[in-house]
Simulated assay, not measured.
Amino acid sequence: RIVLATVKGDVHDIGKNLVDIILSNNGYEVINLGIKQPVSAILEAAEEKDADVIGMSGLLVKSTVIMKENLQEMNSRGIAGRFPVLLGGAALTRAYVEQDMAEIFSGEVRYARDAFEGLRLMDAFMDVKRGVAGAQLPPLRARRVKTGATLERTPVEALPSRSDVAAGNPVPVAPFLGERVVKGIPLADYAAFLDERATFMGQWGLKAARGGDGPSYEELVETEGRPRLRMWLERMQTENLLQAAVVYGYFPCVSDGDDLIILDEKTGNERTRFSFPRQRRDRHLCLADFFRGSDSGEVDVVAFQVATMGSRISEATAELFAKDAYRDYLELHGLSVQLTEALAE
């Protein structure tokens, strides 16, 4: 039995749901808590359901920090030895999980690159727990470093407040200041920007069989990809699943060290600020460096945008997942992701 969750602050669940599908179809009971789950809810469910393993997922870079904090919370509660932990997500690396996180975690933690590795690890966890003769967890993999390579990092206290990024280029003139909302964008306005290869190969998994047996990728595109794509695009429109909308805008800003300060376009007062990391080596770049400093006497401009396909498509994919219609779920979810990319572009 495994408690599975996307960690606090993260809404990405396709990878987690794939793990759910694979484990459920191989005899495991999966308690899928969903997205944006705080560690308290994850641990409460693990205790209540008497879970054997905890699985945490996330796509965002900040989710890797949340996962680390969650492991530290398990340490402080004294339950690290009770629940082995599986971690997965695009922002994670094996070295980060099996070296850095394993060092701070009192229990067993492993990295699952995909759902199938998650299944293998789950089998290993259970064999060890049941005392199967010869059973053991896969060893933690050491970080690979090139022979003779040395990583020189500048101490934090010695970092410059700004890198050598040019500061004399002209500040662009924004077409307007503030935000605008655009709703009801027709599919025809952005469908042409859809990345077919990312959809078919990356999202839908259309790949030629190894060894040359079976149809090629190009043949699969013609027989499976494009017919299914046409079907889904028609269904999205007839069932009114798309609510494409964008919020975008231009805002005055200045930088201060590692911070980008967003100003109110009317009063000039600080509205909010974003703190960015600075490189510890090379040019010591930071995103804030690419905007005028607060001591320059000039005000810069920054653009932001948010694109969405709306909530109906999420509801439709959730219904398909609940019905165990896995192919339809994966295709509709993957297509909606790529259409959002197309709309952003």
Rank of each mutant, 00 (worst) to 15 (best):
G334P: 02
A174H: 03
R283D: 05
F321T: 09
V132G: 02
T6R: 07
V156D: 12
W232I: 12
D328W: 01
I14D: 01
F274G: 11
L285Y: 11
R82P: 04
L220F: 10
E331Y: 11
V302G: 05
L220M: 11
A102G: 08
K8Y: 13
V19I: 15
A245K: 11
E69D: 12
R280V: 14
T150Q: 11
Q72F: 09
T6L: 06
L229Y: 03
A5P: 00
G27V: 08
K207D: 10
A149G: 00
S57K: 02
Q237I: 08
Y217N: 10
Y217L: 13
P175G: 01
S336W: 02
D114M: 06
G268K: 08
M67C: 14
R230D: 12
P215W: 09
E315F: 07
E234S: 15
F200P: 01
M122K: 11
V61Q: 09
V182A: 13
T308A: 03
A133M: 07
A325P: 00
L206E: 03
G89F: 00
T223S: 12
A158Q: 13
G293Q: 10
V173P: 02
M236K: 06
G249L: 04
R153V: 14
G34T: 09
V145S: 09
A45H: 00
L121A: 00
V85H: 01
P155Y: 15
H12L: 09
T223F: 00
Q37W: 03
A198L: 13
D264E: 01
P175T: 05
I35K: 13
L343Q: 01
A102V: 11
F200E: 12
G184Q: 07
A191S: 09
A244T: 10
A115S: 15
I54R: 01
I42H: 02
T150H: 04
K129A: 10
T64Y: 01
T147W: 07
L87F: 07
G148E: 05
D264R: 12
D289T: 02
K62F: 15
R113F: 11
K62G: 08
G15M: 05
L159S: 04
G78W: 05
G178I: 06
R162F: 14
E234G: 13
F83Y: 15
A322V: 07
A318K: 08
